[in-house]
Computed example of a mutant assay.
Amino acid sequence: MKPKLLISYAVLALIGVVSIYPALWTVLSSFRVGNSLFSDTFIPQQWTLDHYKDLFRTRGTRDIQYAKWFWNTLQVAAVSTVIGTILQLLTAYAFSRFRFKGRKPMMMVVLILGMFPGFLSIIAIFSILQKLQLLDSKWGLVLVYSAGSALGMFVAKGFFDTIPRSLEEAARIDGANNMSIFFRIILPLSRPIITYISLMTFTGAWVDFIFARAILTSRDEWTLAVGLWSIIDSYNSTEFTLFAAGCVLVAIPITILYMYTQRFLVDGLTAGASKG
């Protein structure tokens, strides 16, 4: 084996270990007896499911509403995914297919704004939601996630640019308008990019902490990210194993979603390649 190839494999193996080790440590910690962050052994000497049970029951002064937080997060992520995906697809299609005054400056503005971290706008967003009386509301959070989705439209625009315009021209000859072309021709051919956008939007809303922490103040309205943070913050970092159990349950829906949608992504790419 060539030295360069051997070094490449070694680097990839190191990256794999660095990436997998923290996740594996968290999973194993969720089954470990006690609540300590540290352990003498990597694999637990004693296994327990008590931490998972504690997430769904109140014990002592605890007020862990894990099921409620899970439902709140699912609502926010699902609605944000639907609205955000539609907005991003419409925006990308408009910039890809139409030529209008101010198109290039607008694209430049969107590109520049997309380079800045979203949390830089948190004060402005807080003020706007306060005026709209949407603070401490899941729908205010949905509005934030959905409204910002169009900033990531360049991937979808690049995909739409690859679709032949002759398909649209043929549809216009048959009397189809722009919306008919978009929904009946463009979207059926855009399964890969729809899958990608949906996954990214859902994942972003599912794991976001910064905006959720700033907008949601009532414990009943919290999402999982804020709720899990409160477990460690409220109990002075003495409940790491409980926190680890919550993190494992958070990762399960995302893992299932990626495994399920991967098939549609591959099928869409294969269909597009065969047509080309």
Rank of each mutant, 00 (worst) to 15 (best):
I186L: 11
P192E: 02
V226E: 00
M115V: 05
V226A: 01
V110Y: 15
L257F: 15
I252F: 13
D136L: 04
P22G: 07
K101P: 08
W222Y: 14
A212L: 01
L111E: 02
S80M: 04
Y93D: 02
S149A: 13
T26A: 09
I185F: 10
T58Q: 13
A176K: 06
F182L: 06
R263Y: 08
A225E: 03
S190N: 03
G114W: 07
T162I: 00
L14W: 15
A78F: 15
F209I: 01
F38V: 10
I83F: 14
A205K: 03
K4P: 08
T61Q: 14
R59D: 07
W71K: 13
A273M: 06
A67K: 10
G272K: 06
S234Q: 14
A150L: 07
I252Y: 10
R165E: 07
A273Y: 13
I7H: 12
A176I: 00
T48C: 07
R219C: 00
W25T: 06
A23D: 02
F42Y: 12
L87D: 09
S218N: 12
G34K: 05
T61Y: 15
P22C: 06
K4F: 12
H51F: 11
R97F: 10
L6Y: 12
M153D: 02
V248Q: 07
V226H: 03
P164H: 06
T41G: 08
L129H: 04
Y258F: 15
S8P: 03
Y235L: 04
F119H: 14
K104S: 14
T58A: 12
K2I: 00
I256L: 14
F56K: 03
R32G: 02
I194A: 09
T238E: 13
D208A: 04
F56G: 09
V18S: 08
L269Y: 12
M108A: 12
M115L: 11
F182C: 04
R165N: 09
L129D: 00
A251D: 07
T223S: 00
F183Q: 05
Y260E: 03
A244T: 03
F182I: 05
I210F: 15
A212F: 00
I231C: 06
W69L: 01
F126H: 13
S39R: 04
K138M: 06
K157C: 00
F182V: 01
L189I: 02
F42D: 04
I128G: 04
A225D: 06
L55V: 01
W71D: 06
G272L: 09
G152K: 05
S121F: 15
L132S: 09
R99N: 14
L216M: 03
G158K: 01
L141T: 04
P188D: 05
R57N: 05
G204E: 02
V18E: 04
K138D: 08
R172L: 00
G114K: 04
A78T: 13
R59Y: 10
M115Q: 13
L5E: 15
S121R: 03
V207C: 05
R213K: 10
D220F: 05
V250G: 02
G16I: 00
V248Y: 12
K68H: 08
L189G: 09
V226K: 01
T48W: 09
L14N: 02
R59F: 11
Q133L: 06
L87C: 11
L87A: 08
V248H: 11
W71V: 12
S36R: 11
V144T: 07
V76R: 00
I7L: 15
G175N: 05
F38N: 12
I186R: 09
N178D: 12
F209K: 02
F211C: 05
M1S: 13
A212Y: 00
G148L: 04
I122Y: 14
